[in-house]
Design a protein around this nucleic acid. Structure first.
Length: 728
RNA sequence: GCGCGAUUAGCUCAGUGGUAGAGCGCUUCGUUGACAUCGAAGAGGUCGGAAGUUCAAUUCUUCCAUCGCGCACCA
């Protein structure tokens, strides 16, 4: 027996060495696997943001993916798990800008586009190295030779190709409308980059002028100098007689033309039941104005300051303007009511600034425009060559179960979102990211994957929303638009493992892009993971600074223990709290397996393992049957992705059956029985130990691999040892 | 407002149409040759409340309560 076994298991001195051994074997790359005839099984790793370190949420996702990949690899599948990172346009640029400002007091405008991009690239390459080593520390058996980055040259070509295809099909258009403007980041942001905060506010009810017949209510009086209409509900008897009339008034020294219109969207119960329509500074009002063919009037600029003919207001901050206007209303005796209310204020997730809705020219993806599904389509839920829309496509592939989402109830959440889907604003006013592949020359517009020939063409300044490129992730990483061997072999991928909070921004966009671009599904199954919270139940976040580096856990308890504690006792998709005691428990478990092996080997030193042995005693036959049944149960759970149950079963069996019962009883046998009984028991223990190490390997890969070699079952790596066939 | 989830042992959480489960904690006893990280025994739960379906409900249905989350609204 190896001397190493006489000491307690030490993960720290073992894990890095084992990972290196796996990497050197080349088996993370499916091209090198010993079983080349197997069916492919593919997972694309959700690319972490290139901004920094991973937290336990990532560790959970990585563990689930690694369990799936290792299990399938041991079953003889040709397994590809492709890792990568996301450039995360706004998040990364904001982070680097912040650091530069802190150190050098310089803004991006001081540096200029090129210099800033160089700085970001430097930051990102350092950060990617950190992320890589963290992924390795947690034992992820992914194929580093295929690692991808969303800004790589070939992935950028995929982005441009997709943009052009959508542009040519009329699914991408440039248009003016009210968007979410982040005054601090000086960029547009998407609906799902907004966080709502509850705040106290004043709700003012007033008339524009003494001779205006209807009172309105608002929390933002300063926007009212941009009003063009007052909308009432068509059935509201109080106001019906005014509908259609137009009034010329002067509001706070600003001349306005206000038309009274009737619109179904107005809630007659709220406030006075009449809504002052400010098309340029409210998304809802913009839509009302469109329905009634009214022009908007912009009165607030990009820095959230007033734009108006009233010199007293012009250039003032919106909050200052509000006070001035309220004072004016009071002096003019127009203010009817002032109430305290709590309201949800939209703020930018990345910068914290209050969102200012502004009319802007932006690029959009039209989710309701019909297009013809490619003739190459393999989708079963929509006939190839038929007409559909992106919205319908998103609905159909999940509704028909062509894509399965686990846990099941998230399907309802998904449909809820699809039904409320608006056109997707894809342009961002920042510098880091995929620049929009459109050039202008006077009134001429050119869209292409390469710049136009000829002089005087100017490229669009904006870059694309980062989700546009991550939407292509399952196939841009495999070489699309080239029809590569990898693309043919590994796409569609099998499962996607990701946090439920990015079901919409990412998962839905991947379904959209892949369905439209390739006529395929990006993945057959989505496994949504819960959010890992700290001991107080708080979400890990950069702003709270409570992130736990998975490295710390790996150092203190071992990656195996960390992995087990993230899996056992947690229902998939349910949020969980992380508890150090739990992790410690699984460190003990790693040591337990270590000592089980030590016991078995030290009691069988003159007996040779015989894989074909059948001459068991009757006691051993029944113990063996029980063991085989356990493997069967575990395999069933693995097949249905109930990893938490499989892990718990193998844990229970190993500790409380193998160790507490079988090993305890074996002490007597090895001390007192005849050779035949001893041999039967030894062969039984060998078989059980072998299968136990195999079944535990997807969950605790390091300690099992180490023991596999100390026990010397064969020369292979446990990594590629076949999963037991539980049929005898 | 619409939707989703949770409510099970002191704590953190699994699970199930047919005597209620784990880890940690707690109590008692044992253990100097597998175990610094061990074992045995034990205490502890009307499975949030009410009604219904069923031979049988913690599990399925409906309603209610409390907590959390998502979406919308926020004029």
């Amino acid at each position: 027996m190896n001397d190493k076994l006489t000491k307690p298991y030490d993960p720290q001195s073992t894990e890095a060495k084992i990972y290196q051994m796996w990497e050197e074997s080349g088996f993370f790359n499916p091209d090198n696997l010993p079983h080349q005839t197997g069916k492919p099984f593919t997972i694309m790793m959700p690319p972490p943001n290139a901004t920094g370190i991973l937290h336990l949420g990532h560790a959970l996702g990585l563990t689930i993916q690694d369990i799936a990949i290792r299990y399938k690899r041991m079953q003889g599948f040709k397994t590809l798990w492709l890792p990568g990172t996301d450039h995360a346009a706004i998040a990364t640029q904001a982070k680097v800008e912040k650091e530069i400002y802190k150190k050098e007091k310089k803004s991006r405008y001081d540096l200029g586009r090129e210099e800033l991009l160089t700085r970001i690239a430097d930051f990102v390459s350092a950060s990617r190295g950190t992320i890589q080593s963290q992924i390795k520390t947690f034992g992820a058996s992914c194929d580093w030779s295929r690692e991808a980055f969303t800004l790589d040259e070939d992935l950028s070509l995929a982005v441009k190709t997709m943009f052009k295809k959508m542009y040519d099909d009329g699914l991408i258009y440039r248009g003016s409308r009210v968007i979410n403007w982040d005054p601090k980041g000086a960029t547009t942001i998407a609906d799902d980059e907004i966080v709502y905060e509850e705040r106290q506010a004043k709700f003012y009810t007033f008339k524009y002028s003494a001779d205006f017949p209807i009172a309105i209510s608002t929390t933002r009086p300063e926007t009212k100098i941009g009003d063009v209409a007052v909308a009432v509900h068509p059935n509201d008897t109080r106001y019906q007689k005014f509908v259609g009339q137009e009034y010329k008034i002067v509001f706070c020294d600003v001349p306005l033309k206000i038309k009274i219109i009737a619109d179904e969207s107005v809630d007659p119960e709220l406030g006075t039941g009449a809504l002052g329509v400010t098309p340029a500074h409210s998304i809802i009002d913009w839509e009302i104005a469109e329905r009634h063919h009214l022009e908007g009037l912009q009165v607030i600029d990009e820095r959230a300051r007033m734009l108006t003919s009233n010199k007293n207001l012009h250039g003032k901050k919106t909050t200052e303007a509000r006070d001035i206007i309220v004072d004016w209303l009071k002096t003019e005796n127009l203010l009817i009511k002032e109430e305290d209310i709590t309201q949800n204020v939209s703020t930018a997730e990345r910068t914290g600034a209050i969102i200012e809705p502004l009319p802007k020219t932006q690029w959009f993806v039209d989710v309701n425009k019909e297009f013809t599904l490619t003739e190459n389509s393999n989708l079963t839920s929509i006939p190839k060559g038929s007409k559909t829309t992106l919205k319908k496509l998103l609905h159909q592939v999940v509704d028909s179960n062509e894509i399965d989402i686990l846990p099941n109830h998230f399907k309802k959440t998904y449909f809820n979102w699809i039904n409320n889907l608006r056109d997707w604003c894809i342009s961002r006013q920042i510098w880091y990211g995929h620049r929009i592949p459109v050039w202008y020359k006077g009134a001429e517009v050119y869209c292409g994957t390469t710049p136009p020939t000829g002089s005087d063409w100017i490229q669009d300044e904006d870059v694309l929303d980062t989700w546009f490129s991550s939407g292509l992730w399952t196939f841009s990483t495999l070489g699309w638009p080239e029809n590569t061997a990898d693309l043919k072999t590994y796409h569609p991928t099998d499962i996607l493992v990701t946090a439920h909070e990015i079901l919409f921004p990412w998962v839905a966009r991947m379904i959209l892009m892949t369905g439209y671009g390739l006529g395929q599904i990006p993945f057959k199954k989505v496994l949504l993971t819960g959010i890992v919270r700290d001991a107080k139940g708080q979400k890990f976040s950069k702003s709270l600074g409570n992130g736990i580096d998975p490295m710390d856990i790996a150092n203190k308890f071992g990656a195996d223990a960390g992995r087990m504690s993230l899996i056992v006792g947690t229902a998939p998709g349910t949020d969980m709290k992380i508890d150090e005691n739990k992790i410690k428990g699984y460190k003990h478990f790693a040591n337990k397996i270590w000592n089980i092996t030590r016991f078995i080997l030290s009691n069988t030193e003159n007996i040779k393992y015989d894989p074909n042995f059948t001459d068991f005693t009757s006691t051993d036959i029944s113990l063996r049957q029980n063991h085989i049944q356990t493997i069967k149960d575990i395999t069933d759970d693995m097949e249905t992705y109930r990893f938490h149950l499989a892990a718990e079963k193998i844990y229970q069996y190993t500790w409380h059956t193998l160790a507490d019962e079988i090993l305890e009883a074996s002490k007597d046998i090895f001390n007192t029985s005849d050779d035949a009984t001893k041999n039967s028991r030894a062969q039984l223990l060998f078989q059980i130990l072998k299968d136990t190490l195999i079944c535990l390997h997807p969950f605790m890969p390091f300690v099992t691999e180490e023991l596999w070699h100390l026990a010397n079952f064969d020369q292979n790596l446990l990594l590629v040892e076949p999963w037991p066939q539980a049929n005898d």
